[in-house]
Amino acid sequence: MADDAATQAPPLVSVLIPAFNHERFVQRCLDSVLEDAYPTKELIIIDDGSTDATGERIADWVATHCMELPIEYVRRQNRGIAATLNELVARASGEFLRPGASDDYLLPGGLDAQVRYLLAHPCKGAVIGDSVVVDRDGNKLHDSGMCGLHGANKELYRSDDGIRRAIISQWAIGGPVALIRKSALDTVDRWSEGLRIEDWDLFLRLAARDALGFIDVGVCAYRLHDSNLSKTRHAATRMVNLDESRHVALRRAGLFGEPYRTLLRAQSHYIGAKISFLQRRLCPLLLHLAAYLWLVVVSKARPTTTHPDGGAP
């Protein structure tokens, strides 16, 4: 008699693509879903009110490939990235969710590697991988988004304690690199609508429950191009994003036990120092830096405590 585990169909993965004004890149994104050999998947796409030819490019691609895998495609007015991701999740049937981005693309084998991790670690609600970084023409810029773009120490991501510290103090997730157990979103809620940088907020909530794992595998190509680079270079946009991040840090600190709660408070001051630097305000800059350094020292003296909800840290 054949072994049940060997004959059981792989779990369904819902690949979720929020698309907006990426007419040049979206076909490569969609092609990559077909190119990945993982056998049990569906593709759900929402065009979030694109004003270029993105919608037409997607419609042509869907018409060509609709017999090759289950596809659902929706076009509607713009509602923003978090609302679009939440709608994609609501439409998904898969046990596992793979959020993407219409200017990036999946790397072959990434889905299988992440599914295998979550099957082997049933206590984890999500797993993140690494990315390669490419330019607008697909030329490789970095072998590792985590290291090449953010200077991350991947060793931190090999333990729950390290993941919490890394997510809090050095956000180094380059591109859409997560596979999420759909049931995990029932525990920590979904993406917080109204946020511009919605992924840090979600991953903080997952890390607070030790629900986040890591595999050192490149699972997507993260594309740097004029639109996303301009967001990081524009000072006013950077200040808005930083201010939002500071409020997220303060709001989510209560989810953590010590010393992570104090580290998040420290991080809020570090972000405040960045804002003050961009504003060229010396006194607030020095005050934020002093508070940051003090809280980092205090965190090292804090005994490890349980989560406020009673779970293990």
Rank of each mutant, 00 (worst) to 15 (best):
G194P: 14
F214L: 07
V240F: 04
G162I: 08
V133H: 08
P39L: 05
T304Q: 12
W61Y: 03
G55H: 08
G254I: 09
R28F: 07
S93M: 06
S230M: 07
I163M: 14
L107A: 01
V89T: 11
P122D: 04
R205H: 13
G257T: 05
A291F: 03
I275D: 01
A113H: 08
W294K: 15
A301Q: 11
V297L: 13
Y38T: 02
E258S: 06
V188N: 08
E244A: 02
R196F: 14
L149K: 08
S144A: 03
W171P: 00
R91T: 01
H65N: 13
V132C: 10
H22V: 02
L30P: 01
G174L: 00
D309R: 07
L107K: 07
P176G: 09
L97Y: 06
C283V: 14
G254K: 12
L34P: 00
G148K: 07
C220R: 01
A37E: 13
K140V: 12
I71Q: 10
S268A: 14
V15T: 10
R246V: 00
H225T: 06
L229E: 15
G49Y: 09
N78H: 15
M67R: 12
L202D: 08
R165G: 03
L119A: 12
P99S: 07
Y222F: 15
I17R: 05
K231I: 15
D60G: 02
A63L: 06
N78Q: 13
Y260I: 04
L34N: 03
I128R: 10
C147V: 12
K300N: 11
T262D: 10
L141Y: 07
L250H: 06
C283D: 11
G194H: 12
C283M: 11
V132D: 13
A126I: 09
D48M: 07
N86G: 14
V296I: 11
L156M: 08
R196L: 15
V217R: 15
G272C: 05
D137S: 05
P308T: 12
T40L: 00
V127F: 08
P11H: 03
I173P: 05
C29V: 06
T305V: 10
D130E: 10
H142M: 12
A5I: 12
S50W: 03
A236D: 15
S159M: 12
A221H: 09
A290C: 08
C147Y: 06
D31P: 01
I163S: 04
E68N: 08
A291T: 00
A178W: 09
A290T: 10
L185T: 13
N21P: 11
A53D: 15
M67Y: 08
T262H: 06
L229K: 04
L263E: 13
L107H: 01
S192P: 13
L286Q: 13
D243F: 04
L285S: 01
D161Y: 06
R252K: 10
N241M: 14
V177P: 02
P108F: 01
A208M: 09
I58N: 03
G145P: 02
R57N: 11
S144R: 01
V26K: 06
D31E: 10
S131F: 00
